[in-house]
């Protein structure tokens, strides 16, 4: 169970014009603008839900995920994940969550994937018997058998993403944050990843929060979508609310329309 109430967060960014003149000027003084990355964000996610968290680049998606995973402390507001405040009880909290950053790897580039997994087992102190069982299941369901002895640098993008997901599940988290898990994957890999995420959610009841730009991911996986723009939650509801309004338009077009409508 995740609950966010009025989470706010702002950053300072420096501004500078183009050209040599302003480059020299910026040596002596700089102007700063305050940007509200999160502006009173509130939502609730129940156990076993699967939600799609969407919005244009820089809308505040990853800031929200960072707050929920305990990396970022908000300026104000309340966030409770499984009864804990993430940034206050970090160590206990992170045992319950798994995080996949789509563009960043947690695997060791030059050593076999299996060795990376073993190390993650030690970091989480997963018991050996449990680990064996979890790993066997992941290997068979994500089809990792061959890959376990291959160094990560030799994997294709799709193979690597499957391994990344497995790596985030070795400690059996109750909540899984997926940040663009299908980015850059070819069609079969995308389908395999989606299929696995769906079964993880349906069969094992893992809560999944999925951020993505790929609307087909959203369509295929989630029942509920949260749209964020300029740090505010603009829409929170079942996916049908999106599709029903647009008639026979493609979902990508619908989302583009929506971004325009909200001026984000």
């Amino acid at each position: 169970m995740i609950r966010l109430v009025d989470i706010c967060k702002s950053y300072r960014v420096s501004r500078r014009g183009a050209g040599l003149g302003s480059a020299v000027k910026s040596l002596f003084g700089r102007r700063y603008d305050l940007v509200r990355a999160l502006d009173c964000v509130s939502f609730e996610v129940g156990d076993g839900e699967m939600i799609g968290y969407i919005g244009p680049n820089g809308a505040g998606k990853s800031s929200t995920v960072k707050v929920m995973s305990g990396i970022l402390t908000p300026d104000s507001g309340e966030c409770i994940v499984n009864g804990r405040v993430p940034w206050k009880e970090r160590a206990a909290h992170v045992r319950d969550i798994g995080v996949v950053f789509g563009q960043r790897s947690q695997l060791w580039w030059d050593v076999p994937v299996g060795d990376s997994f073993d190390l993650i087992r030690d970091i989480y102190s997963v018991k050996r018997a449990d680990y064996r069982q979890i790993l066997d299941r992941l290997i068979s369901r994500l089809d990792l058998g061959e890959l376990m002895r291959t160094p990560a640098r030799q994997l294709s993008l799709g193979q690597r993403m499957r391994c990344e997901i497995a790596a985030s599940l070795l400690h059996r988290p109750k909540i899984l944050f997926l940040d663009e898990p299908t980015i850059g994957l070819d069609a079969p890999s995308k389908l395999a990843v989606r299929e696995f995420i769906r079964s993880l959610n349906r069969l094992e009841g893992v809560t999944v929060i999925l951020t993505t730009h790929d609307m087909q991911d959203i369509e295929a996986l989630t029942d509920r979508v949260i749209l964020i723009g300029k740090g505010r939650i603009l829409l929170d509801g079942p996916i049908e609310r999106l599709t029903a309004a647009g008639g026979d338009k493609k979902i990508d077009e619908l989302v583009a329309d929506m971004y325009r409508a909200f001026e984000i």
Partner: peptide, 8 residues
């Protein structure tokens, strides 16, 4: 050159 100047 300009790029180098911005690192105050």
């Amino acid at each position: 050159f300009i790029n180098g100047l911005q690192y105050r």
